[in-house]
Write a protein that binds this DNA or RNA. Sequence first.
DNA 1: GGCGGGCAATAACATTTGTTATCAAATACG
DNA 2: CGTATTTGATAACAAATGTTATTGCCCGCC
Lengths: 191, 191
Amino acid sequence: MFDQFRNKFRLDDDKWNDYTGCFKRMKVSARTALLKEGDIPKNMFLIEKGCIRVWFNNDGKDVTTQFFFENNMVSSIESFRKGYPSPVTIETIEPCVLWYIHKKDADRIIAEVSELPVFREMIIDTVFERTFDYMKQFFSFIKDTPQQRYLNLVKEKPQVVQRVPQHYIASYLGVSTVHLSRIKSKLAKEK
Amino acid sequence: MFDQFRNKFRLDDDKWNDYTGCFKRMKVSARTALLKEGDIPKNMFLIEKGCIRVWFNNDGKDVTTQFFFENNMVSSIESFRKGYPSPVTIETIEPCVLWYIHKKDADRIIAEVSELPVFREMIIDTVFERTFDYMKQFFSFIKDTPQQRYLNLVKEKPQVVQRVPQHYIASYLGVSTVHLSRIKSKLAKEK
DNA sequence: GGCGGGCAATAACATTTGTTATCAAATACG
DNA sequence: CGTATTTGATAACAAATGTTATTGCCCGCC
């Protein structure tokens, strides 16, 4: 599971085994909350198999903001770092096989490796990328119509359209399920 | 101008003077672009007097995404770090007095101070805060009505409502100027 | 002090999107 | 295998928001 990351890091075997040994494997069924809105994150997850969505409660309706698939790391990252209550719930969509690491281990690893400038850069870059993702998603919400957002999703994240139930997609796109149906049927006609 | 930051940092006077000496003062008139969409950021700005908006072009219409006022640092931060073309334009609204620092000086300072764990934490936290801001703005776009977003703005950033022309505010809220007018008149009647 | 242009309010109408309800199809699971 | 549940499509109507056009105001500038 971790071999895919091996060549990114120049760590000696002892360190590498120490760090990867902090991850534990678990299986969970579909629709299981790994972190609940308002709770303080204890773990970070790496997906071996399955998919996960991130959502928050808006007046009783859930609003999905992100999807994750195999090999993605998942956490409510800002809360994880600062120990704040999470603004979102993290929940499996399909049955999943996950690897998780406890916050205290993650903190230790980050502190150790960030003594090295190359890791420091990497950490900062990672956070910047996260910011950039939010920015892009936010901009797309402002400038694109729901139909355009749907087309972008089909193009950029085809897995989502293939694997995720449509009502989650509708809430991710910011429209009602009915309207997403309309968009799809309109696109089908045009084609 | 920099005294307000003095007590946040435990630097000896030599370093402090070195770093603050990298900032130059300039005056610019209203509606001046400090950075244009597509250009690579060369400078970062600190506002002594005036206000600034960040916007991007959407099919000929401009969409405002942020406002900045006195004592704010302004940059297209993700692009500034990576040397990417900026996705946004940074433009003065009022005549401004600004301090700016060149990227090469900023890079040197960041590299120097991030040897110290306390600064490293500070830098990472700053980026996280930025991410958190985007997230909040994004979530508010999804969950709040335009009227609610307007009320939030009045409450949280009264300066914007007082100093910024209404059509910029409308585009910031994601509605037409006509609809913002409607919202205001509706609120006035209810009151 | 007058004038042109940017700015804001409003009305009328068009379009988009949401809501509710109903039905059909797909899927899960005992 | 059959039944319950989830999922998706569609129609009809309601509400929100955009577009265009008009008017009046205010403010900077000659």
